[in-house]
Amino acid sequence: MTASKAEITRILAEIDNGSSFLITSHESPDPDAVGSSLALANYLSGRGKDVTVYLSDPVPDNCSFLPMADQVYAEMPERDFDVCFVLDVGEFRRAGKAVTGNKRIGRLINIDHHLGCENFGVCNLIDPKASATAALIHRIIKAAGDEVDYPAALCIYTAILSDTGSFHYSNSDPEAFAIAGEMIDKGVNAWDVNENLYESEPLQRIALLALALSDLTVSPSGEYASVTVTLDMYEKTGANAQDTDRFINYPRSIRGVQVALFFRQIEEGLFKVGFRSKGKMDVSAVSASFGGGGHHNAAGCTVKGTLAEVKALVFDRLEQMR
C-alpha cells in the first residue's frame, strides 16, 4: 500500500469513527479551496454526518452557485468538533487564527497538493502531483467505495477546472481529465460552470482590472512581467481582494514572459506577491527566499516596503535566481 493509500485508509477510519466535522481552508479562498471544502461537506452530509464549513474570508461571488455555499460560516462556531479537515492551505497558519489557536476543533486532517506542505495533521494526505485538492477529495470518496453524487461532482469539477486554468496548465494530467469526464457523466454542465466562474463578472472587477493593467511592468529582458493592485485602486473602484482572481494571467499571457507577478497591497508597507511560471523557473524557490511557498509554477509570499521597493527587490531576486 502506498503512503497516499495508507493515509486515505486512515482518513476513512476518522470519518467512520467521527460524528461532527469542521471543514476549513485558507484565507482569501479560491475555487479549489471552496470547491474541495464543499465537495467534502456534501459527501459527509450525505453520509449522515454533522458538518460545518468555516472560511475566514467570504466565498467568492463566482463560487456562490456551488451547493452548500450559502451555508458557509463566516465566524467560527463556539462548539466542539471531533475532526477538523484543513484543505489546500500549504501552511497551517493560512487557515487563520480562529483555526490555528482553537483547541475545540478536534483531530486535524490535512489534505493538500502544495509542494512542501507542512505535516500538521494526524493524517496528512499530500500529493504535489495532484491537479487540485479537489482531486484528493475525489480519491477519498472513491476509496470509500461510494459514488460521487451531483452536488459533490459540481464542486469537484469547478475546483479542478479552475486550478488547471481550464485545462491549460501543466497540472492538467490524465487524472484531472478523467475526473472531469466522470463529473460530466454525473450531470455537471460544463457551460454553466464556465459561465459562473468566468462570464459573470461584476463591474467593479473590470474597473479594477483596468487600473491594474495600467501599472503593467515588463523587465528589460522581457522574461518577467507584473501587474499591481493597491489600496487606492480598491477605493476608486469599490472592488476588493476577491475581485483580483486571475489578474496574474494577463502578464503571463505576454509572448516571451517566463514568470508573471502580481503585487497586491495588503496594508500600508506590505504587499502580497504572487508568482506564475511557464516552467522554466521554479518560482517556489523564489517565493521561499522571501519566506513564502507554493509549487514549481505557482507560488506566493509577502514582502514589506513601498511598491517601488518591493517591485525592485522581487525583480532583482528573479534575476539573481534565473
Rank of each mutant, 00 (worst) to 15 (best):
G294N: 11
A180F: 12
A207S: 11
L211I: 01
I111K: 06
I11Y: 04
L87A: 07
P251A: 10
A159C: 05
R104G: 14
Y54D: 09
V188A: 07
D30F: 04
M321I: 12
D149T: 12
F263Q: 05
A134H: 12
G293T: 11
A260C: 09
S284L: 13
G90E: 04
D112Q: 09
Q242I: 00
G145C: 08
L125H: 08
D146M: 11
P31C: 06
L209W: 15
G269M: 09
L213I: 10
R93K: 15
I105S: 13
D192C: 01
N17F: 07
G35R: 02
A39R: 05
E267W: 02
N42M: 02
G274T: 10
S19F: 04
L40E: 01
Y198W: 14
A33E: 01
L40Y: 04
L307V: 03
H295E: 06
G106H: 04
F177H: 15
C63H: 06
V229F: 07
A210P: 00
L108W: 12
T164M: 12
L136G: 06
A152D: 05
R47C: 02
I266T: 09
F177T: 04
P58H: 02
V286D: 01
P29D: 02
V51A: 06
E267D: 13
S219K: 03
A308V: 08
S28Q: 12
D316G: 00
I111D: 09
P58S: 13
A95T: 05
H138V: 08
T100Y: 03
D50F: 04
G187Q: 10
G121S: 14
G165C: 08
Y198P: 00
G116P: 03
S28D: 03
F315K: 08
R246C: 01
A152R: 03
R47K: 15
L40V: 05
E78R: 01
N42H: 02
S64W: 01
A308L: 03
L125E: 04
H26V: 08
A176Q: 12
C155R: 03
Y169E: 10
A130L: 10
R93H: 12
E147F: 05
P60R: 15
T302V: 11
R79C: 06
A33V: 07
A41L: 01
S28G: 00
A285D: 00
E75L: 06
